[in-house]
Amino acid sequence: MLKCEDIRPQLSAYIDREVPLWEAQMLRWHIRSCHECAFEYMLLMDTSEAMKSLVSVAVPDNFLSEVMTKASMMAVYERKKLNLFQRAMRHVEARFARLKYIFYVFRGKATVYATTLMTLVVVGYFISAMPKIFTPPLSKPHPMLVKAEVNCSKEIISVEFVTSERLRYIQGR
């Protein structure tokens, strides 16, 4: 059972849905059973709701055009500052940036693909090895049975039918 002191610091993360599912379930159970933590949770929720009630401000109409004008001016100024070699290097770097981006995207996906493949291989191996794992190893023949076989080597009695009673009978003879 979790204590209230352990629960309280988690409440904010619970409100923001930043706790794992199992922890969220435990917190929910605790809040339902503990009045003090439930009260605290409600106060924090109210605070969050009060914050959300703040209205957002509008973007000025000329914001985008102003930024674009300044950016264009900046681009012209930057271009003037560079000599021919630097400009050529920039161009090459920019072309390489695209390749790098494709590599990063592929690398991210490749990790997912490799992990999936590895998991499938491991699961496949276990499934194929399962009969071997779960089949009991061949046991040694029963010592009595071996003895019976030795004793009855010249007899006509088949080993399959040898029971302890029959063995005793054979030995008695």
């Binding site: 339902r32 409600m42 924090l44």
Partner: peptide
Amino acid sequence: KNLLLEMGIGGSYNAQV
């Protein structure tokens, strides 16, 4: 939470678990 309670905001206790 403490500041808003001092200011008399919040505490409507309408949150759902």
